[in-house]
């Protein structure tokens, strides 16, 4: 009797309580630094140092940091740049990537497999290793310090994974559908347009995948577009933070401003993203 109760307890403890203890503890570790920055960005300087763990209240609330930010930096411009670069790159990656994926999955032509492997090389080989060549090329094309340079590089960077994932999904579309369309006299381009909506979930997943590294990238903006007019949010924040190290209010609020859009987008799309990551991994 005693033994049975003991084992019941250890079952309850092992199967029910331990996972929650572990996960909850780690969740606190993951969130604490982020929350700490968020709450302190709304406090006055003295309170940041005196009571860093307290939430801002009527006495300590202050928007000083945000005011400095608006006065001294071009954050709205950086946001616009990041937005343009990310949206245009994603569009190019998805459109040209879907076309290539369709051809690879649909047509048997000589060199199909080799082309597929060639296009997949970029999944494992980081594009950064070609930076010397990329900078020379952009200089030769006169694109240094333009957003075009970033868009072209990010498109090349995102394509391998996009093509790889989309090819898998495109090849699952039933052949009968395409053949029926062909019998009706539809052109190959028309068939592509008919297929595209059927892989919409995959397209959305790929979009989220390729978006994060582009939005967060520091390397290429630093090297190809570090002029004031072409700075992205990540580079702008990095340089602003470097200059204003001692202005804690400004530093905390710029960190908050740079985090908020990503956090909001993440909370909206997390289900989709995680489903995509897990579905991709099973393959």
């Amino acid at each position: 009797m005693q033994a049975k109760r003991g084992s019941k307890f250890s079952y309850w403890f092992g199967e029910k309580a331990v996972p929650h203890i572990v996960l909850f503890t780690y969740m606190l570790i993951a969130l604490f630094p982020i929350v700490l920055i968020l709450i302190n960005s709304f406090k006055e300087r003295k309170a940041i140092f005196k009571t860093p763990l307290a939430f801002p209240n009527a006495e300590t609330f202050s928007l000083d940091g945000y005011a400095t930010l608006m006065e001294r930096s071009n954050f709205p411009l950086y946001f616009t740049n990041s937005l343009i670069v990310t949206v245009v790159s994603i569009f190019l990656i998805l459109f040209t990537g879907a076309m290539a994926a369709y051809a690879l999955s649909e047509y048997k032509f000589r060199g199909n497999a080799i082309l597929g492997i060639y296009l997949a090389l970029g999944i494992m080989i980081p594009i950064r290793l070609g930076t010397v060549g990329i900078l020379r090329l952009m200089a030769a094309m006169g694109l240094v310090n333009t957003l075009y340079a970033l868009i072209l590089v990010y498109t090349a960077m995102g394509l391998p994974l996009a093509i790889f994932v989309l090819t898998q999904f495109m090849s699952q579309v039933p052949r009968e559908l395409k053949d029926a369309a062909r019998v009706d006299g539809a052109s190959e381009y028309r068939i592509f347009w008919l297929i595209l909506p059927m892989v919409r979930p995959a397209v959305a997943t790929v979009a989220v995948f390729v978006m994060i590294p582009i939005w967060n990238d520091l390397w290429f903006p630093l090297i190809l577009a570090n002029g004031e007019k072409t700075k992205t949010v990540t580079l702008g924040a990095q340089q602003f933070l470097g200059q204003f190290v001692s202005d804690w209010n400004a530093v905390l609020s710029s960190l908050t401003l740079a985090m908020i859009p990503v956090l909001i987008l993440y909370l909206i799309f997390s289900r989709q993203l995680i489903r995509g990551l897990t579905a991709g991994a099973v393959k």
């Binding site: 076309m99 051809a103 296009l119 930076t131 060549g133 020379r136 090329l137 960077m157 381009y189």
Partner: peptide, 22 residues
């Protein structure tokens, strides 16, 4: 060719060729 060209060209010109150039 129409389907494959845009992606292959962008990828080759802005990723593979710079790598080889490096």
């Amino acid at each position: 060719v129409v389907f494959l060209a845009p992606a292959t060209i962008i990828y080759t010109v802005f990723m593979i060729l710079p790598l080889i150039d490096s």
